[in-house]
Write a protein that binds this DNA or RNA. Structure first.
Lengths: 303, 303
DNA sequence: ATTTGTTATAGAATATAGCTATAACAAATG
DNA sequence: CATTTGTTATAGCTATATTCTATAACAAAT
């Protein structure tokens, strides 16, 4: 297992064929094929499925490539510092459920590190994709919540996939709605009161298991339920349909605007927002800063 | 720059001569000498000073080797997982000023990870060594405090050495003393009151700059000052001499025993305990856990 | 002066990585 | 249905790198 082989594997995985990858790597196709095969023999894992129409990455290959990327990145960091002496752009991505504060923390971090030396990405997406992104090394960190209802199921998924959940902040449940909503001035609202209005929820794609829902009380039977896949859409529906959504109560007026407000729900239920990482994986300085930024919402979470 | 070369460099740095290192690496001495020299030429840095009585590491070499250790460790992690398939023992060390809670957090972390898969080390030492240990990659994390007096000086040292300080907890200043000390029952003590008793301080070796002192009010002129280099010794002197020491007020009865108590000092001064890491360095899962454990003292710190 | 340790150098043997040419195969194409 | 075009795999060769042994050069201890 050499660094060269790892670099080759990564390039092949990003290509549609050995031929194409060989071109990118400026070596001949037989050399590349041999190098890959030698590695596969050494580790005893088939990384790519070869067909006459190109290659596909096997599931085990996907995991291996994840580790390979880490190792090569570390190596290239040294290479950049000591050999070529140019600054290598470090990468950082995060995948999150639909939380304005996760986006806010992200932009704060970006501001502090600057775009010159770093490459950033944030994916605001459905629960299952958050898990997948972290699993496949697409994102270093995933942001999602656990509560008493989904904790066991998600924890099992985490441990099966070598993932680790770390709590960041606990918060009560709030109904998020338009400022001019009839219930907006209440101190406390009950589910019965809310039942007169449509509940807005984030679409979770094909995986419509309750456990993947982003609404805290997914088991409750809502009279009216509307699904959306975009936070801005959802906000628009709050105004247009006098809808509401159940969430953490962590507000970011800067991002969602001051047109909305959160009213505490009459419920003892507590949700735990936390971060998901691959088990045994180091957290980069960028990741450290991002988590620090999220922790700044600890106070705001307990309005 | 190959992984092999990096491994060679690391072994040489841990040996007294090329010959000795060559033996450890099961290669001939000329091969090793050539490999090292080739690397030095490539990066344009002299890593080792050769004398007829062996080798010494240059300062630039020390830094390079630090990075090399990181990179090789990452590589060996993959190698262990995919090639040799035996679990590699991960290493974690921390250097800290004399804080019982730092030791306590350490032992909590060790308990949770278990000694089978990991290799641990904790160095309770003087301020300058904490900084040196982190700088030279001996410890991943250093624990020390900043206050208004030493902040500027230490911050400058940190940035000059590519180190980063992250605050963990703020605490007031307490006088730590024997439970049967005449002042032990007071709610609040002044420096004037304490002046009747010897002040106990940690010896900082040759570097006796005020800025490196572990006592919070190092500028104050103590009538009686006794230096020690061991926490247990200091505790004994508290009993024997009715001495006291100024500290954070974070107590760990489990470790120091219940024979001692902390009395709040009549002063607004606040000290910030935090951790020190190399700039741009990732934090390992062990380090993450350790910091989490220290943060659990956040409440105890504000008695 | 000799011995014993060190690092550095030279030249030969071996191992490795890459190349070209070609095979083997499957799907698209005329 | 043969041909073309894409794919990966194999064989044999060459240039390069790695590592060895033997030896030199040097300094300190004996």
């Amino acid at each position: 297992m050499t660094i060269t082989q790892l670099k080759y594997v990564i390039t092949v995985a990003e290509s549609n064929s050995m031929n194409e990858a060989a071109g990118k790597l400026f070596i001949s196709q037989p050399s590349l094929s041999a190098a890959i095969k030698e590695l596969e023999n050494e580790i005893g894992i088939e990384l790519f499925r070869r067909t006459n129409r190109g290659i596909t990455v096997t599931p085990e290959g996907k995991e291996f490539i994840g580790y390979a990327k880490q190792t090569v990145q570390q190596y290239e960091l040294m290479e950049a510092k000591y050999v070529s002496k140019k600054e290598l752009k470090k990468k950082f991505s995060v995948s999150t459920q639909h939380y304005a504060f996760a986006v806010n923390a992200f932009s704060e971090m970006v501001k502090q590190f600057g775009m010159d030396e770093y490459e950033f990405a944030i994916y605001e997406t459905r629960t299952n994709d958050v898990i997948e992104d972290v699993k496949n090394f697409k994102s270093e960190i995933g942001i999602l919540y656990l509560n008493d209802f989904n904790r066991n199921v998600l924890s099992k998924i985490f441990s099966e996939n070598n993932l680790e959940f770390h709590p960041l902040l606990n918060c009560g449940i709030y109904a998020y709605m338009w400022k001019k909503h009839p219930l907006a001035k209440e101190k406390l609202v009950s589910l019965e009161q809310l039942n007169d209005y449509p509940c807005l929820a984030f679409d979770q794609g094909s995986n419509n298991s309750f456990y993947f829902a982003e609404e805290v009380l997914s088991t409750y039977e809502y009279k009216q339920l509307i699904r959306a896949n975009d936070r801005a859409t959802l906000l628009n529906l709050m105004v247009g349909l006098k809808g509401y959504t159940l969430c953490s109560g962590i507000l970011c007026e800067d991002l969602n605007g001051s047109e909305y407000c959160a009213v505490k729900l009459d419920s003892d239920e507590v949700m735990t927002v936390g971060y998901l990482i691959r088990k045994g994986m180091n957290i980069s300085p960028l990741g450290q800063k991002y988590l620090e930024e999220i922790l700044k919402f600890k106070d705001k979470a307990l309005i």
